[in-house]
Design a protein around this nucleic acid. Sequence first.
DNA 1: CTGAAAGCGCTTACAG
DNA 2: CTGAAAGCGCTTACAG
Lengths: 340, 340
Amino acid sequence: MEESSKITIKSIAREAGVSIGTVSNVLNGTGRVAEDTILKVKKVAEALKYTPNSSARNLRAQKSHLIALIVPFLEKSTIHDSPFYWELATSIEAGARDHNLHVLLTGLDKDQDVSFVRDRNLDGVIVIGTSDESPLVAQLKGYGVPFVVLDSYLSDPEVFQVHLDDRMGGYVGAKHLIDLGHRRIAFITDLLLDRGLNYKRWLGYKTALEEHQIEYDPNLIIESGLTFDGGYHAAQQIFQKDGDVTAVFVLSDVTAIGLIKGLTELGYSVPGTISVLGFDDIRYTEYSSPPLTTINQNIIDKGQRAVRLLLDQIEGVPPIQKNIVLPITLKVRQSTARNL
Amino acid sequence: MEESSKITIKSIAREAGVSIGTVSNVLNGTGRVAEDTILKVKKVAEALKYTPNSSARNLRAQKSHLIALIVPFLEKSTIHDSPFYWELATSIEAGARDHNLHVLLTGLDKDQDVSFVRDRNLDGVIVIGTSDESPLVAQLKGYGVPFVVLDSYLSDPEVFQVHLDDRMGGYVGAKHLIDLGHRRIAFITDLLLDRGLNYKRWLGYKTALEEHQIEYDPNLIIESGLTFDGGYHAAQQIFQKDGDVTAVFVLSDVTAIGLIKGLTELGYSVPGTISVLGFDDIRYTEYSSPPLTTINQNIIDKGQRAVRLLLDQIEGVPPIQKNIVLPITLKVRQSTARNL
DNA sequence: CTGAAAGCGCTTACAG
DNA sequence: CTGAAAGCGCTTACAG
């Protein structure tokens, strides 16, 4: 066994009796090199178990084969409650790995800057959940680094974005409940004022109501946050505000599950006395009781599309579209029922 | 606004009228530099928004301020079903960030090597769930890179490890059921032959049985895998093998939840006719129905301890202990009841 | 106190 | 076809 500490092209050059330039050419398949030399160098490289030093390559090439996945931790509880960030992260990691890129997982504290993106010569960045207000996007644009933004609604048309057809999600969900005969439909969401994805879903919900001549009632909007706990505590609020509610549209499955627990404890039965509709279709929904009717989104696909969009930028492929909108589908299970 | 593309110590040196060596000394607080010069250089650096290039630093220093979190994706379904990897990953990321380290998230395909650990001059590595059989650990040792292994039971006493008191977990869980009067207790696990954490828990289970003069029956051991589906399908198996089972100890909460669904569909009631005990205490357990009695582990703490152990190695702090064993606690909720 | 120089490991023109 | 040299941006002895 050879001491594996310091095998560089220099070691190979010495061993093979050629110059380091030639070694480099052989290993990269560049330049004109004699067949004999190629064989010899390759053999030595293999024998010495040579692998190129990334720092040196990165310094030379001014890139890093590294992308960052930036997750703003502004709302820690939401992030932790949601089991789908992991799926998203792993699908991005898998996609990146297929293209010889590594993924830096980075949480971001409030008003922390991202100069590391430039310092580390990152090849690209994927950002989850930001907004026009965040300085993050401006900073990334300033660096000139390719980036893709997920689940955000940025007004800048130059920015590459991937998100769901959230408005359609809101519409389809509300329509499902309306079609079941519900008229008083509560709506549980995070803050709407950020004009982000929740706002879009809310627009869809409103559109569905309008289409069916149902009066929109702001009292039915509950901005309790999209955590387990938020749902649990919303159970009381719903009926404090209005005794006639027969259905609730909840913008996250975990919150829907919290809500169902809350409702059950208050003596309501789902879907017997009240219907509950979720959003996300996390794996868990099938196993909850009752199995949750929800709006399905394909997380794996979302991650893969983001990686694809980023890679195209990195490789200079002209974009067909900068704004990818992913479809949603209604998944009917057993937490919604006809309003009698 | 200045063109931000290429600010190096060279730019600063030029602008400030000093040499690059002096700039470096000022920025690093090394060497003896005149007060005036310090001020001048610092001002220029700030004005130019200088941040040091990591690749160059890394090349020079032969390190990277980068650690890898390696997650073997051998059993994809388990990984994806379990909501706690995300918590673990984020707690590791947060801990690393506090110490100026970035985290590389890396899945690992079967027989993929980890030469990137050396190529990228990684400062350290955290590995989740490996075993003596995996070539991974040997490779890491060969590189001489600091590393910590989570949730694995490696026989090598030199390796830094963090895991739960799994045997105690198995013991405490089984004892709880025994104390409730159960005698025929099924045990749902992943494969036991790897001698890993499931095996330890199984030992604890056996010990508890022995202590109470209950015969160990291999028929009650179901190696169905620790996924939602594994639990769901185990429901039938349990009673095919033995009609007298009154309790089931399941080594993962998600699997316990799958099992409960399966049992419910078969007409059993939990905990009325059969008790179910989980493991992990994921957030979800509180909201499932019935709320799950389970063995609690502190994921955040696990991640933090791993980072701490890694940092000590990196900084050359002599280890107090190489093997950290984290406590478990029994969390009694409502899925277990007295055997009548 | 400050500058010039070497070197980390690599790639890429450029001679020959 | 092959070698010598420059340079990516940084840090660290070493002179002076």
